[in-house]
Design a protein around this nucleic acid. Structure first.
Length: 644
RNA sequence: GCCGAUGUAGCUCAGGGGUAGAGCGUUUCCUUGGUAAGGAAGAGGUCAUGGGUUCAAUUCCCAUCAUUGGCUCCA
């Protein structure tokens, strides 16, 4: 007999060789129907595998990441079986689960798979799923494994087997499909109730562009049809929120082929929105002791040789530009920090000057590969809400704390409520990868971890994710529909102060090297605006939105009164416009709603006679009548509370 | 950069070997109305660009460019 400890601490005594599924069955049949895999002593295995020793056991269902990924991994095999049925010559490379589904990289040889075939494949998968074929695990010797895939002519599997130890090789078979696989898998294909193939993509064998490009088929499966429906609804919602679509509809920005790829043009409303965000951050930064600086869009190539960026990124940058006669070489600036270092160096610095905080909305240009450009989130020219803090080693913790405060203020004001901070530290295995003394790193890493803790941030620590020049603190937000985005970043830098030989005179009258902190709460204005659009589905917070109020006269007779109302609003710095088109009120309302204008003021005979306005809130409908003054007060109050 | 898809009016899209259509928008006219689309008429397109096949190409083929989904990359 062996002892099985369940997550609630209860212990069950069962015969050796009992499987997790048996145990689930003994608890309830309903539970057993949902068990996809089992976590035994921290390791995820097949739910049907016998357990032979005392163990802690967690039954994994669709609600566990481990259960989900097992299901998707098994689904990849199921898809492979369906593909093999129609394309017997297909060779299978790897087919893992991913964050939202699974894929399989497949070599179709001469044939081409089109997404028009998806329906056929999905139907086949469902047909095979209904057969409830078991996923049968089999340990095979290396020579047998090689023999099997040599017969199948699948060089990819052979290459994978080549890297495996004899004795550790397992095959899984369901129905007519056998795959080299470590597992684990769900008990049988019947757990898969809903199937959707998502897209096709090219992917290199082993991710190396020198290797052959395979066809990657993405799919997703669910244990209930409804889960699939919900998922498709979510995707639809994401499409509706796409910043490229909304940016066009709301006249925020535009891309022109004549200007160039990845070079956004900000339209008046977008520029207005962006300027307001910048002002918001400038005000916050002013309070936090930042000083504005302005630097040119180009800089001498030698500046980037000093910084090290030329050596690392020069070849992948926009080509340098030259002066016509002297042949001096300049770069479009890809980073603001070298310029800011030069500002620091513009005169001798004392410890009494520190910390120095230089802030600039600095526009930078980077050559991004054409396939990588995407709306406003990935562009070739963008403006960072950049700042560099030059401080002494013992000021790091304080300064990072202040940056965190700033970031938290921004998140709160813009209604990003769900976020975590990722602390990126050195890879303990490879200490030689990093520049700067071990003592300083130890102190800096400790400072980041402590201050994140003190600020009550939800954090995850990632070892090996630090930059070579210093540890980082990155903020990851979840938007309104649950998608993750990386936003603000705080990075310590020991490298640039070294390369630029930055110094300050300490209290001891010796020269010391300052530490530099790079930070950008938004990241870039382009990317941030894109994320904000998608987060709020184009319904910007009242304080930020370009048009706060639209006045809708019932008919031409009330245009004068509407203009009077407009004047009152404008005098209170409320951004408003009058819709004077000869349209009916229903249409004006409809369009104001679709334009996502937060408030509509309807003015007609009644309002004119009583010196009132009938207010309507976007998405909520009629609010009733107000005097113009009361309405203004209410708007002012609402905005004030938002920016508090 | 690589693989796939797409490119038709300002926008969203339909169509299809015999030089084009809808809705919205826009213009003009009628209508002056009460909480999510009033009516009529008109303007607007070398069907992305360049080649090829064909009696004939916007349609089929190839290339280029751009957009797009991935891959690789990301200071």
């Amino acid at each position: 007999m062996i002892q099985i400890t369940l997550p609630d601490g209860s212990v069950r005594e069962v015969a050796q060789g009992t499987s997790a599924m048996d145990i689930a069955m003994s608890i309830s049949e309903g539970l057993a129907r949902n068990v996809l895999a089992a976590e035994v002593n921290g390791q995820v295995i097949d739910a049907v595998r016998p357990i032979n020793e005392d163990a802690s056991l967690k039954l994994l269902t669709w609600n566990d990441d481990g259960g989900k990924s097992t299901m998707w991994h098994s689904s990849a095999h199921l898809m492979a079986e369906a593909i093999q049925h129609f394309y017997p010559k297909a060779k299978f490379a790897i087919g893992p689960p991913v964050e939202d589904g699974f894929y399989y990289d497949i070599d179709f040889g001469e044939e081409i798979l089109s997404d028009k075939e998806f329906k056929k494949l999905e139907d086949k998968m469902l047909e095979l799923a209904r057969e409830k074929n078991e996923y049968v695990r089999e340990e095979v010797s290396k020579s047998d494994a090689i023999k099997y895939f040599t017969e199948r002519g699948d060089e990819y599997k052979l290459e994978l087997i080549d890297g495996l130890e004899d004795g550790s090789i397992t095959f899984y078979t369901q129905g007519s499909f056998t795959d080299l696989c470590r597992g684990p898998h769900i008990p049988n294909t019947g757990f898969i109730k809903a199937v959707k193939l998502m897209k096709l993509a090219g992917a290199y064998w082993r991710g190396d562009e020198k290797n052959k490009q395979l066809t990657r088929v993405y799919g997703v499966t669910f244990p209930k049809q409804k889960d699939l429906t919900d998922y498709l609804t979510l995707l639809e919602e994401a499409r509706k929120r796409d910043h490229r679509k909304l940016g066009k509809e709301l006249d925020l920005f535009h891309f022109s082929q004549n200007v160039g790829q990845g070079l956004p043009l900000w339209l008046p409303k977008g520029a207005d929105l962006r300027a307001r965000l910048e002002t918001f951050l400038k005000n916050a930064q002013k309070k936090a002791g930042y000083e504005p600086v302005i630097t040119p869009h180009i800089g001498s190539k030698s500046l980037y040789e000093t910084s090290g960026h030329w050596a690392k990124y020069g070849e992948d940058s926009f080509r340098p530009i030259e002066t016509p006669h002297e042949g001096e070489v300049y770069m479009l600036k890809p980073m603001n920090c070298p310029h800011h270092c030069e500002i620091f160096k513009s005169r001798p610095r004392s410890y009494k000057d520190l910390p120095i905080r230089y802030a600039e909305f600095g526009t930078v240009y980077r050559y991004e590969q054409s396939g990588e450009l995407h709306g406003l989130t990935r562009v070739r020219g963008f403006t960072q809400d950049d700042a560099h803090i030059f401080c002494a080693q013992d000021q790091i913790k304080d300064e990072i704390g202040k940056v965190i405060d700033l970031v938290l203020y921004i998140f709160k004001t813009l209604d990003f409520q769900d976020f975590i901070a990722q602390v990126s530290l050195r890879d303990p295995e490879n200490p030689e990868k990093y520049i700067g003394s071990k003592e300083n790193w130890d102190k800096a890493e400790k400072a980041i971890a402590e201050v994140a803790e003190e600020k009550g941030l939800k954090t995850v620590v990632e070892y090996g994710e630090a930059a070579f020049y210093g540890p980082k603190l990155d903020f990851m937000v979840r938007d309104a529909i649950g998608r993750k985005w990386q936003l603000g970043t705080v990075q310590l830098d020991y490298n640039l102060p070294e390369r630029f030989e930055l110094e300050y005179v300490g209290a001891d009258n010796d020269r010391h090297r300052p530490v530099m902190i790079h930070r950008a709460p938004f990241g870039s204005m382009e990317r941030f605006v894109a994320i904000l659009i998608e987060h709020c589905a184009g319904k910007f917070p009242l304080w930020l939105t370009p048009e706060q109020v639209r006045i809708l006269p019932i008919s031409e007779k009330y245009h004068d009164y509407a203009q009077d109302v407009l004047k009152v609003l404008n005098n209170s710095d409320i951004r408003a416009a009058v819709d004077e088109r000869a349209e009916k009120i229903g249409k004006k309302i409809r369009e104001a709603e679709l334009d996502k204008v937060p408030y509509m003021l309807i003015v007609g005979e009644e309002e004119q006679n009583s010196s009132q306005v009938s207010a309507r809130k976007q998405g909520h409908g009629d609010l009733g009548a107000f005097s113009v003054e009361d309405f203004v007060k209410q708007i002012e109050k609402e905005i004030k509370e938002m920016l508090a």
